[in-house]
Design a binder for these strands. Structure first.
Lengths: 342, 342
DNA sequence: CGCAAAATCCAAAGCGGTTTGAATTGAGTT
DNA sequence: AACTCAATTCAAACCGCTTTGGATTTTGCG
């Protein structure tokens, strides 16, 4: 079932060198020979051994993703869409995706090992933390990588693609304020991740700009899951001075919020407004003529695609200078917002 | 940054053979030598080249997952939890996970290529279809594999792990009937996948056993996403003879159902009962003292773990006979069911 | 002490490609 | 026809590890 280079060369009566070059598109082989080689390769069902190739070239045509197997499971649903996007791009470009799921404490070591053993040509970094050590490590190891998100605002020393989370939450907050809301709850993601930090900044800045004081009892920072939204919303609704609007970091807690609101006999969009960031997860479509949620939309799958492109480019053009993309979200008006009740 | 075998051997003044054997735990090397080798390896920061090893041994210590990049995105959220479970097990056992996301039409070819190029030692097969060709292909290629799900009921020619979907839906239907419901809607998954077929069977059998005729206008089969549940439930509620209970194939459409029910001013568990299959997705916890949904629970993450174990075992013990596991679901009573309104 | 058996260790041949440096062929000039 | 120079092609070394078959050293025991 298939032959190797040597056998192919033998069958053709030419040297391995020439065959190898013919197959890899080198210019120093005549078109006539190349045709013959290609034909014979087809006929004998030749397929090169990736292992041998990797050993000989030192390149692996593989991109690594390391996922910490943390309690922050919340990463998963976002993750799967990102992966879907990136994965499509990889296979189109002939790259494999190597995925490693390891306990948090082995994370750095795994980065090191993947790189040192040359098992990957590049790495994708997810969910950067505030003082993320992975970035420094990869830089030191001189391994191409792209970060989905970014560590510091002005970091131009590596490639990243990020959503303008700060601006996005400024706009959302502004929208609610314009609608008359002055008591606005926040269901943020975990703030050791930079995106959540920026969202909080956007929120706080805008409140302040309108002379509204931030209220700690209606600001939360947890894993972006459904039950989080439910429980915290219930908690907020029980306050004497309950919020009239809630800003959510993901559609999952937003759904939890809706559940709590309905359970309390209130109506979303009338009694309580909700604006949420929406990663347009494929299994939670917030669409339709009038979408369920007013949302700041940004496709995480597209982000995966673009990050993959950037990474492949960086791998194939070493020495290229870093690329940065800051995506703005799309603000779509849905059914979940309305003027503040008087 | 690290040395190779040859250099290690040189530093020790022994042959590569002995060093290799010492490192790989062969018996024909004395404990004394082994210690020395191990120490020196540590000291020189030796790490073997996986490529060279793969080339020399023909084994890749890698397990492949092929995900069709279909419109059936619904696979993703389930998928990510399964992957999380499997991935943990792989890394513990020293295996890598290779993930390929390809268009449906390239799926078979990709299987073939991964296997033929020896890039993987085993494959995991997801979401088997009714007459799935992948299974035949892998059998023919003589590649170890485990199927999550199964094709035919009595198939003992390969290893699989499945949930007893038929029994599960029998029990669920039975529960609703016992509560007095006689008009029970079905929001099933796509029935080209075998699990959905079996669920429908369980549902239909039980209806029939109780003399209830199946009603096509309240039976659906689509991708298990939130909007599906919402739209179809709305549709069912508008019927003159609307159902008093709905059986869902996943918690996502179940959430959609709840949304539609509440929107219609009805109450889940009183006006309309819901029972759902629950894959215990990590980001959609259906837990608490009294869970939101009455559900048939089965952890898809645990399934991932167990499938990975089975596969690794099969890889390391070739010639082992196939293993089958049929898991029963756990029926937990939640807030979403109650006696049929009279 | 001598010798066969057991315990260690080693040189060299793969695994299947890529790549270097030299050799061969062919076209173009004079 | 002789001679260059460019276009092709090739033999052999190399990537880093495993493994075979044989050589060497120890050990056990009469």
């Amino acid at each position: 079932m298939g032959v190797n280079l040597k056998q192919l060369a033998q069958a053709l009566g030419i040297s391995q060198t020439t065959v190898s070059r013919a197959l890899n598109g080198f210019p120093e082989v005549s078109e006539k020979t190349r045709r013959k080689v290609l034909d014979m390769a087809q006929q004998l069902n030749y397929s090169p051994s990736p292992h041998a190739k990797k050993l000989a070239t030192g390149k692996s045509k593989t991109i690594g993703h390391i996922v910490p197997q943390s309690d922050h499971m919340m990463i998963n649903p976002l993750f799967s869409d990102f992966i879907a996007g990136a994965g499509e791009t990889y296979s189109k470009a002939g790259y494999d995706m190597l995925m490693s799921i390891v306990p948090r404490e082995l994370e750095e070591k795994t980065y090191y090992k993947l790189v040192a053993s040359k098992r990957v040509d590049g790495m994708m970094v997810h969910a950067p933390l505030v003082g993320d050590t992975r970035i420094a490590l990869l830089k030191k190891l001189n391994m191409p990588f792209v970060v989905h998100g970014r560590s510091a605002d002005d970091d131009t020393t590596y490639s990243w693609l990020d959503v303008n989370n700060r601006r996005s939450f400024q706009r959302a907050t502004r929208l609610l304020i314009d609608l008359g809301h002055r008591r606005i709850g926040l269901l943020n993601g975990i703030e050791s991740m930079t995106f959540a930090q920026r969202r909080r900044m956007g929120y706080l800045e805008t409140l302040e700009a309108h002379g509204i004081e931030a209220a700690p009892e209606i600001m939360f920072s947890e894993d972006m899951m459904e039950p989080y939204g439910y429980l915290r919303t219930r908690q907020m609704l029980s306050l004497a001075d309950r919020p009239t609007a809630i800003l959510c970091s993901s559609i999952l807690p937003a759904m939890g919020s809706v559940r709590a609101i309905q359970e309390a006999g209130l109506e979303t969009g009338r009694d309580i407004s909700i604006v949420t960031h929406d990663d347009t997860l494929s299994f939670l479509a917030n669409s339709g003529d009038i979408p369920m949620f007013t949302a700041l939309r940004s496709s995480i799958k597209s982000a995966g695609k673009r990050c993959a492109e950037m990474l492949i480019e960086a791998i194939e053009n070493p020495g290229m200078s870093p690329v940065h993309e800051l995506w703005e979200t799309e603000l779509v008006l849905g059914n979940s917002t309305g003027p503040a009740p008087t």
